[in-house]
Write a protein that binds this DNA or RNA. Structure first.
Length: 338
DNA sequence: CCATGCCA
DNA sequence: TGGCATGGG
């Protein structure tokens, strides 16, 4: 997924309690995928309503949002719009990888290899238009704002961070740094556990913050050079230079200063270079999206979760009460100061 | 993922 | 009380 910048980034373990009162952009597709792949039975089946429609994303969105609100975090979900034409190859690859996993899943089911069934099921996820629509409806009922990006959601969320509309971007994906997010937060939950792939075991995970400026400083590069490096390594929008990973890219950028110099010294070309740079640096975004928290609508939440999707009301009721009290108990003005 | 129930 | 297994939809 995206460019592997992990060897370069400067991470810091944090606690979500330290960010009480601050607004965060949540990468909607990223979090929906996480819910979809992890909220499952042991046999790999996702949660479903009486009509067989998947509801894992709604469960995840409901409980996660409330736990964040309870910790004083103001989440704004950001959803993807139309992808760039340059992403077509990446999207095709992902579809193919899922088709392959789906075939392997059939074999694993026949063999009754339950560990494998579970891990493969987690990879065969499709976020449908309906799922996104239901999630938006649920968020509205909960009084939590969301933003529809014209193009890349990560670009929109990062723009909101760059311009101080949110403090940070919550995503597992380091690509947000390329879009100029000042801070990217991973594992942004209070009670962190994550399943070890392939094994029925869990490891504790704590939230971590990746700071763009400190990452740049630690590597002795500029933001423009980071973008250049990513393009050399390969992004969702291009395949990169053969055999260039994070280490080589860093060496090359230090040696030559820019991707143009690297390419000319090697006699190589990257198609659509300026367009790729523009996707990261000057993306199509909604500049001033409305970020307004509203009073939760209890009846509407119950209608969506219980009436339409058979959630047990005695289970969710106390959480709706918590949500309502977090709304009532907070100050309405919260321009993030930093 | 998050919640709950059970048992040490 | 808390660590683990299981259920949720």
């Amino acid at each position: 997924m995206g460019v592997d910048l992990s060897p370069l980034v400067v991470k810091e373990k944090v606690s979500i309690r330290d960010f009480s009162g601050m607004t965060f952009a949540i990468d909607g597709y990223n979090i929906l995928y996480q819910f979809l792949s992890s909220i499952r039975q042991n046999d790999g089946t996702p949660l479903m309503d009486s009509k067989g429609r998947v509801t894992s994303h709604l469960s995840g969105c409901f409980y996660r949002s409330i736990s964040l609100m309870e910790a004083g975090i103001r989440p704004v979900f950001v959803f993807d719009g139309k992808p760039s034409r340059l992403k077509a190859a990446t999207i095709r690859e992902r579809v193919q990888a899922k088709e392959k996993a789906a075939e392997e899943l059939i074999v694993a089911r026949e063999k009754r290899d339950m560990e494998r069934v579970r891990s493969l099921s987690a990879r065969v996820n499709y976020i449908t238009r309906d799922m996104v629509g239901e999630t938006k409806a649920l968020l509205s009922a909960m009084g939590i704002p969301y933003v529809q990006a014209p193009s890349e959601g990560e670009a929109q969320a990062s723009y909101m961070c760059r311009t101080g509309q949110v403090y940070g971007v919550v995503s597992q994906d380091y690509d947000c740094l390329l879009f100029g997010s000042k801070r990217v937060f991973r594992n942004f939950t209070s009670g962190g556990r994550r399943k070890i792939p392939g094994k029925n075991m869990y490891v504790p995970v704590s939230p971590e913050m990746i700071d763009l400026d400190r990452t740049l400083e630690a590597n002795g590069i500029t933001y423009d050079q980071l973008v250049d490096m990513a393009i050399m390594i390969g992004t969702d929008f291009n395949t990169g230079i053969e055999k260039v990973g994070p280490k080589t890219a860093l060496k090359l950028i230090k040696q030559h200063g820019s991707i143009e110099s690297v390419l000319s010294s090697r006699g190589e070309v990257i198609e659509n270079l300026d367009e790729i740079k523009a996707i990261f640096k000057t993306p199509s975004v909604e500049e001033k999206p409305e970020i307004k928290f509203r009073a939760p609508d209890r009846d509407k939440i119950i209608q969506i979760l219980c009436d339409e999707h058979q959630f047990a009301s005695e289970r969710i009721d106390p959480f709706i009460e918590t949500l309502i009290s977090t709304y009532g108990g907070r100050s309405q003005t919260s321009l993030d100061t930093f």
